[in-house]
Nucleic acid binder design. Structure first.
Lengths: 157, 157
DNA sequence: TCTTTATTGTTCATACTATGAACTTTAACC
DNA sequence: GGTTAAAGTTCATAGTATGAACAATAAAGA
């Protein structure tokens, strides 16, 4: 009997291949972040924090915690690092003394741009190895994969 | 002029979409690992270590360092945790007193099987949301993506 | 107005991930 | 036998992350 045809059954070969690919892709991403971190001389968390200012001139600690998916006490630490490096500045919100407004310094803005353009080039390099048609398929596949992962994750949490 | 047709040029829209998808997928993987870690009551590094014994009855600290991509001093720490939890045992290699052979205890083996089958089910759940045809496309796309990421990474290092 | 309640951000204790240098023990190679 | 190499451990250091306790301030109610 060939159980390839059974409902809801996926050949082991496919699952194994999928697991291997996901693991490899995940590892690639991790290595890329480590590389980025070394290249720009900034711990990964601070680097990610810096990029949050891409479309936002001012951010509060709370907003950063939400965007970075970390506890607010973590944000304090990360921002401390960025302040020490003079990549961000902190000012009191004139409308509410509890909140501190963070914004990039000129140096921080320059560095953020550098990082962004590095990432852009790298991603372009990756996509360049696909033909237009393949690229469209890939983006569709990844987008479906994302939805699928998220829906399976919902079942767990 | 439409630069979609220019050689080596990829529409910004595609790059942005790609960046977003990669980030989201990466985050999903991270969250999955955290969930796994909590579910099985084991720090992530120890959990990953446990799974290395899947096809290997005995492993040395050095071999584990290679498989896990960490320094050997890190392995000492990870194995300490697994020993404390009685998930692995350590014996001296009769042929070379310097090396310690690690192997799973019955409990460790049972836990490893549990983790493996949990992962298997989850991945099956994800793939189940694809038709056979889509699945094949996805696997091909991911595999090409992996090659592409790896080749771009080579240029950096 | 005065009091309670909620919010913002900091500090601190804790835990996990990871590295590299220094060191011990043992094996291997002249 | 003496040097060199390899396997593992220990320790100092750094980064990632959380949650509880806390101070300051704002907002809402009585």
């Amino acid at each position: 009997m060939n159980n390839k045809e059974r409902k809801d059954h996926i050949p082991d070969r496919h699952v194994l291949e999928f697991e291997g690919l996901i693991d490899a892709l995940f590892q690639c991403c991790q290595e890329r972040m480590q590389y980025q971190s070394e290249r720009f001389g900034l711990p990964d968390a601070e680097l990610r924090c810096l990029l949050q200012f891409q479309n936002e001139r001012y951010l509060t600690a709370k907003a950063l915690a939400g965007r970075l998916n970390v506890a607010k006490s973590r944000v304090t630490k990360i921002v401390d690092g960025l302040l020490r490096r003079k990549l961000v500045e902190r000012t009191d919100d004139p409308e509410d003394c509890r909140v501190k407004l963070l914004k990039l310094t000129a140096g921080g803005d320059g560095l953020a741009r550098e990082i962004l353009s590095f990432r852009r080039e790298m991603h372009q390099g990756v996509l360049n190895q696909f033909s237009l048609e393949q690229r469209v398929w890939l983006l569709n596949g990844l987008s479906q994969l994302k939805r699928s992962l998220e829906s399976v994750r919902e079942l767990l949490v």
